[in-house]
Design a protein around this nucleic acid. Structure first.
Length: 235
DNA sequence: ACGGCTA
């Protein structure tokens, strides 16, 4: 999920480039049907790329953390391996958005100090992380700020105002559609309700259009009546 | 002129 390709139906609204020491950072503001977000890509001196994705609201949170991290950094004494914690972390924060977790760690190693930003999706997926040289945190914060000034901090997703549920009766069956939201995002719950029996499935919003396509495909196939039934839909 | 010791 952290991988690199451009998604379909994704538009780029703005981009900003920053050179910090030997690295280049590209901060893109993008938009897809799920809302607006930033892609932060780090290009190393060797051309290697790392990136993380932040919803705009998370980007605003990150901007605030950056201010605090750079204050903290400004008040640090000179590097001292003797007082450095075992894990190399001088200060840590976390951010959470839907099912994504972000770890911000101001770290120190023999090369110096840097802010490591890592993003995790569920578990097992490829790791997304970037490292910002501590000296560049302010510059980075300012770049983030400029983009937030222009685009705001609203993710553009559905916040609070989910569509109404509905009911459908077909033949003798009752179906209910309910739209809900949990920490993993928006979902639709379809329940079939009888007097002594209730069953339901929960469908993540991300997949609704695929369900629609599959339904439409079957509807088309059944229209022509005849031999090619739905069972032939996989190929 | 870098380069960053789990998830």
């Amino acid at each position: 999920m952290c991988g690199g390709q451009q998604q379909v139906g994704e538009q780029e609204l703005a981009t900003k480039m920053l050179q910090i020491q030997s690295k280049r950072f590209y901060i893109d503001v993008k938009q897809n049907r799920r809302g607006r977000f930033m892609k932060v890509a780090e290009i190393g001196a060797d051309g290697r790329r790392n990136q993380v994705f932040l919803a705009l609201s998370t980007a605003a949170e990150f901007r605030d953390h950056l201010s605090l991290f750079s204050d903290f950094y400004a008040n640090l004494g000179p590097p001292n391996p003797d007082t450095l914690p075992e894990d190399g972390k001088l200060k840590s924060e976390t951010m959470v958005k839907d099912n994504r977790r972000y770890y911000l760690d101001l770290k120190e190693n023999s090369r110096g100090r840097f802010l490591r930003v890592s993003q995790t999706i569920a578990r097992g997926g490829p790791r997304c992380q970037i490292a910002i040289p501590a000296q560049g945190m302010i510059e980075f914060r300012d770049a983030l700020q400029e983009l937030l000034d222009e685009f705001g901090t609203d993710d553009g997703g559905y916040k609070g105002e989910l569509p109404e549920g509905r009911h459908m009766r077909v033949e003798n069956k009752n179906f209910y559609f309910d739209i809900g939201q949990n920490n993993r995002g928006i979902y639709m719950r379809i329940s079939e309700v009888k007097t002594n029996f209730r069953t339901a499935i929960t469908i993540p919003e991300k997949s609704w259009s695929r369900f629609r396509d599959i339904f439409a495909d079957y509807v088309d196939k059944m229209k022509d009546g005849g031999e090619k039934g739905p069972s032939e839909s996989n190929k």
